[in-house]
Amino acid sequence: MLRVEHLTKSYGRRVVLDDFSYTFNDGVYALVGENGSGKTTLLSIIAQSENAARRSKGRILLDGIEIKKEVSEYQNRVGYMPQRTTLYPGYGVEDFLMYVAIMKGLGQDHAAKEVNELLEELHLIDVRDAPIGSLSGGTVQRISLAQALIGFPDVILLDEPTVGLDLAERIAALNLIAKRGLHSTVIMATHLSSDIAHIAKEAVMLERGKLVYAGSTENAMSLLA
């Protein structure tokens, strides 16, 4: 269970997150809102992505324990897929995923097994040895999703995970995300109503950094329209 309490973040005078509080259980939450509403900031703070977390006010508790006290242990329980990343262009796909796995504390054998399964699930087997920089945007997107899922994290934060994927790839990615949502907390920022409708159990809506709605995805969709 992930509890966010009174999270506030400003860049200079611009308030990007405004007293955001919410409790997330297991399942897939769609984080929605217009471009600029604070979705990316919220995800990057929960991910304790350095710059974002600095000088943000409020608390984040995972299973009752405030994460500021247990940062490295927390990092092992979180998977984060940022928006539009180029990852490490010089790394081979499999090498990169193995690197992430080892950094997350998985043993060599365990890491190899998990990485192999992810390569299969996300149809990356054919490019396992290719340098990431040589691959198309859609493929890099799938690699970025894969690295967020390594170690079966309890909290999975995905920022626009299906952008640039064609429909079949998108469904494959959503299926995988949905399965993880059966046992983890997945918070997925998306502007695709089909993503929301497909797999989210609940929608959390931001407007200018404030929580304006949380509840059924149907209601959220009509509010967005």
């Binding site: 897939v28 469904i171 959503l174 299926n175 949905a178 399965k179 497909h198 797999i199 159990k201």
Partner: peptide
């Protein structure tokens, strides 16, 4: 049972 279903059939949506 989800994985087994995916292995056998073309699953196009999974929702809890």
């Amino acid at each position: 049972e989800v994985q087994a279903m995916q292995d056998k059939f073309r699953v196009v949506n999974i929702q809890n």
